[in-house]
């Protein structure tokens, strides 16, 4: 990886951040605050996820938020001098965690899409 690679995570962090502001506002309102205090039920979420739009939004949200969060954590870690020489292993570990989280997230959403059971 050449030393000019850092432009890309920096840029993606900005773009994902900008998209997340909009998507999370929708997600918070629809998913949590519109009928706040009512327990969230499996049936309710399943009904919402019947529409392809919401499935798409949730999947994009999952991927963006995992990238944004883990890249943010990476930025914080690498701001400490003790971790700086280990940039590569740290980035690799966080990358693997990210991939695993996205797969696990899709796995967790899967019952809603197929209808549970």
């Amino acid at each position: 990886m050449n030393r000019y690679f850092s432009t890309i995570p920096w840029l993606l962090q900005r773009i994902s951040g900008a998209v997340l502001v909009v998507l999370l506002a929708v997600h918070f309102w629809v998913g949590h605050y519109a009928d706040w205090g009512e327990p969230i039920t499996f049936a309710g979420v399943q009904m919402r996820l019947q529409s392809t739009v919401f499935i798409t939004i949730d999947l994009i949200l999952l991927m963006l938020v995992v990238f944004h969060g883990l890249n943010g954590v990476r930025n914080i870690i690498l701001d400490y001098p003790a971790f700086l020489p280990h940039n590569r292993p740290i980035s690799l570990i966080l990358f693997i965690i990210g991939i695993a989280t996205v797969i696990f997230g899709i796995y967790a959403l899967y019952p809603f899409i197929t209808g549970g059971g």
């Binding site: 499996f42 696990f104 967790a108 959403l109 899967y110 019952p111 809603f112 549970g116 059971g117």
Partner: peptide
């Protein structure tokens, strides 16, 4: 994500 993953056990 961990909370939501309880959906894989049962509704």
């Amino acid at each position: 994500i961990w909370t939501i993953s309880s959906s894989t056990i049962s509704p």
